[in-house]
Structure formats: structure tokens, C-alpha cells
């Protein structure tokens, strides 16, 4: 006999998760109208990248609360995160500008008191999730964990030729800044695991949504848009 599962009317963690959307309604260049991609919608090898920093004496809840409130300020100066107006809340979209030229974004997938996660839209350099968490492991640890694949063949090449290292440096910088926010000077630990070395060739067409190409087209089109604008 099969037991019927009785579900509560409203699941306890429903408010922690973003609502289902087919395409992002809000967002800037290379974000609005895009679908969200998990790692299985990407192209290149799948990586689990984990970066950690020790923040002793600060409760995990406080680490996450400060991280959410100051998220963009912990980034390196060459990249900018425009936080959603409502802050880091499930379903909100943040825009990213990198090196003055690359425009993309993220959607906030999940938040709770000790973690929050982002999911990337089509065209982002990588497809997958980034989870930021704080937990007790003989003292508080702040952690960034990415589970990602380069989004398309072009981003896969870019990752091979140094973008992957740049990604590592960015999150290491973020964690150094997070620790410094609590007056702690320390170096993060990095652990990189290639979960699946295969390339998903069925997703090679993702290149049509590549945000670098989209950003370049957007920049080249700026004079035309200016001319069309009514004076």
C-alpha cells in the first residue's frame, strides 16, 4: 500500500526560494528576457570551486547579514555589482559590469539566515549557481562555492586562457574583503574540483547568447541609439 504524503499548505522554506520564472523580466543588457541556466545547461567542464575564509568570533548569521548588505563593496574595483533595489532577496535580479565592457547579471535563487545563492542567466560567462554561506567549523567560516560550467565554446576558451584564474582571484579578493570588514586579515583557502570533464556539445549553441558578444554589439550600437533618440 502506498502512503499518501500530506504536505503543509505553505512549505516552511517557500519564502527562501525565488518563484519560478520562464524568463527574467527585469535586468539590464544581457539579462532581461533571458532564461536561467544551471550547470547542466552550460557547455564546458563542470567545476566545483570552493573558497573559504576564517572569521572567528563573528556569528554566521551576522556574517551573512553583513555580506548581503555590503555585497558589491567586497568585489574588486574592476567589477561592479548593482544590487537589486530590494536587496538580496529571492527572485531579485542584480546587474554586473566587468572591466567597463562586459554586462551580465544574476538572479537571487535562495536566501536564509546563513546562506544565499545566485543563479546565472543565459550568456553569463558560466552557467550555474554560486552559494555564499557561513557556518561553524571550530569557529565561523565564510564560504563561496560555485558549481558551474563555462556557458559556451567561447567562454570555455576564455576560461582556458586565464579567465578561470581571474575568477579564483575575484572570489579570493571578496573573501579577504569580507574578513577585513570584521577587522580580520587572513588569506582564503581555495579548493577546485573538476566534477565532470566532458563538454556538453548539445549546448554549444549557447554562444548565440554570449554576453561578451552581446555587450560588444550594445557598445557598437550606442552612437546609433543616440542618433535615434529624439532631441
Amino acid at each position: 500500500m502506498t502512503e499518501e504524503r500530506i504536505e503543509p499548505t505553505v512549505p516552511a522554506d517557500k519564502a527562501n526560494w525565488a518563484p519560478h520564472v520562464e524568463r527574467l523580466a527585469a535586468g539590464g543588457v544581457n539579462v532581461g528576457g533571458r532564461r536561467l541556466n544551471g550547470p547542466q545547461q552550460g557547455f564546458g567542464p563542470m567545476w566545483q570551486k570552493t573558497y573559504k575564509v576564517r572569521i572567528p568570533g563573528v556569528a554566521p548569521e551576522r556574517v551573512i547579514s553583513e555580506w548581503k548588505a555590503n555585497y558589491g563593496s567586497f568585489w574588486p574595483s574592476h567589477s561592479r555589482f548593482n544590487a537589486p533595489v530590494a536587496g538580496i532577496q529571492p527572485g531579485e535580479v542584480g546587474n554586473i559590469q566587468s572591466m567597463q565592457v562586459l554586462s551580465t547579471g544574476i538572479m537571487v535563487l535562495y536566501t536564509d539566515d546563513t546562506s544565499f545563492s545566485f543563479m546565472t542567466p543565459e550568456g553569463h560567462p558560466f552557467a550555474g549557481w554560486i552559494t555564499f554561506s557561513a557556518y561553524d567549523d571550530g569557529g565561523t567560516v565564510g564560504q563561496v562555492q560555485l558549481i558551474i560550467r563555462p556557458s559556451d565554446p567561447l567562454w570555455d576558451l576564455v576560461f582556458l586562457f586565464g579567465f578561470g584564474k581571474g575568477e579564483d582571484m575575484m572570489w579570493q579578493h571578496t573573501l579577504r574583503s569580507l574578513a577585513a570588514h570584521f577587522d580580520i586579515r587572513t588569506e582564503p583557502e581555495t579548493n577546485l574540483v573538476k566534477v565532470d570533464k566532458k563538454r556538453l556539445w548539445r549546448n554549444a549553441r549557447n554562444i548565440t547568447k554570449n554576453s561578451a558578444i552581446g555587450s560588444a554589439i550594445h557598445i557598437l550600437g550606442t552612437p546609433v541609439r543616440a542618433l535615434r533618440r529624439p532631441s
Binding site: 522554506d13 547542466q40 566545483q48 536564509d112 545563492s117 549557481w129 552559494t131 558549481i147 566534477v195
Partner: peptide
């Protein structure tokens, strides 16, 4: 939670 989702995807991969 979202970390658990990542764990499931790791198994899937």
C-alpha cells in the same frame, strides 16, 4: 536548501 541542490547536481554530474 540551495547547498543541498548543489549536492544533488554533483551526484547527477
Amino acid at each position: 536548501n540551495s547547498t543541498g541542490i548543489a549536492v544533488i547536481v554533483g551526484i547527477l554530474a
